[in-house]
Amino acid sequence: MVKVEGLDKLLAEHPFFDGMNEDMRKTLSGCARNERFGPGEFVAHEGDPADRFYFVRAGAIALEFHVPGCNPIVLETLHGGEVFGWSWLVPPYAWTYDIRVLELTRLISLDGACLRKKLNKDHELGFELYSRFVPVMAKRLSSARLQLSDMYGRPCKKGE
């Protein structure tokens, strides 16, 4: 079992927390848990209650959509230094895709209910956390749009 001080150290090593004030990070580490998953395991399934938010320390995971009667479609793969799982922020707090582990993966998770409680009390911490979330979400959205554009397909004819 990793102690809170140990968890704070792990959080400090993750790029998401670069430059974050130590007190804030320590407060967050009170909601943190160190986790490990093996290849083929699922961190979450679509529709499950989204009560945790994850930071990838090492390894690789796939965000997948289950398509009835077909192989699942992989939407994106994530690696060390990345974050996933915003669903705890928005009602109805449920996962919108499956999270499958591709190789031995170490994660730190933050408990959503615990976080919401802390953020309600400490708005400055809330602002700090959201200021870090938003650029990550914006980048993810812009990548998703690029992925959707089928850019390696045929370019349009002039004037199309």
Partner: peptide, 15 residues
């Protein structure tokens, strides 16, 4: 850009 779950590599944009 897209793959079925048998693909062991990355999925996402080259950037």
């Amino acid at each position: 850009d897209h793959a079925e779950s048998g693909w062991a590599g990355n999925v996402g944009v080259v950037t």
